[in-house]
């Protein structure tokens, strides 16, 4: 699994309230979450994350278990999320909906620099510099490759 795109750089401890605020949760319309993704952090991000790879600081996605956070990122067109560490529920949720999340010791970067990753080869590259990606467990790898837990389930039953 591979991906490439310009970086959108976020700080550390980005909580799921910042990714999608509680006031937008009561709907099944995923476009609403995409429209308001990261709004309280920066209202222009919803437009700018399309086709981009998020490079975040430590503890990405901490806080609430709301799956709307990862769905909002995917629906907004985010290609993948890279961070030195993730909160565990966010990480599991991302895999479950087929959004590539890559744990790698990346330093803070600048918006727009080129980011690419190759999960099979186990690396992520930020602005020309390559970092090792932490391998997924066999089960998580299989779920991500299937496109998420729903398609994984359908192909394993």
């Amino acid at each position: 699994m591979q991906g490439v795109g310009p970086a959108i750089c976020l700080g550390r401890d980005i909580d799921t309230d910042q990714i999608i605020a509680g006031r937008y949760l009561r709907t099944k319309d995923r476009s609403v979450w995409a429209e308001h993704v990261l709004e309280d952090l920066d209202p222009t991000l919803a437009e700018r994350v399309r086709g981009a790879i998020i490079v975040a600081g430590r503890n990405m996605g901490c806080g609430s278990s709301r799956e709307q956070a990862v769905v909002a990122l995917r629906e907004a067109g985010v290609v993948g999320v890279v961070a030195p560490s993730f909160a565990r529920i966010f990480f599991r949720n991302a895999i479950n909906i087929g959004l590539p999340v890559i744990e790698a010791p990346v330093p803070p970067c600048t918006d727009g620099v080129r980011v690419s990753f190759d999960l099979d080869a186990g690396w992520v590259e930020v602005d020309g510099k390559r970092y090792p990606a932490r391998p997924l467990s066999a089960k998580m790898n299989a779920i991500l490759r299937a496109g998420g837990l729903v398609p994984y389930w359908r192909s394993h039953r």
């Binding site: 806080g63 609430s64 278990s65 709301r66 799956e67 990862v70 529920i89 599991r92 949720n93 479950n96 909906i97 998420g148 837990l149 729903v150 389930w153």
Partner: peptide
């Protein structure tokens, strides 16, 4: 529990943890 604060119930000597909605569906 499909809520991050499901860890609360560990107070009773259970292994209790939070997950997302798709994990819960499975």
């Amino acid at each position: 529990g499909a809520d991050s604060h499901s860890c609360t119930l560990g107070a009773l000597g259970a292994f209790a943890t939070g997950m997302g909605a798709t994990d819960m569906a499975a």
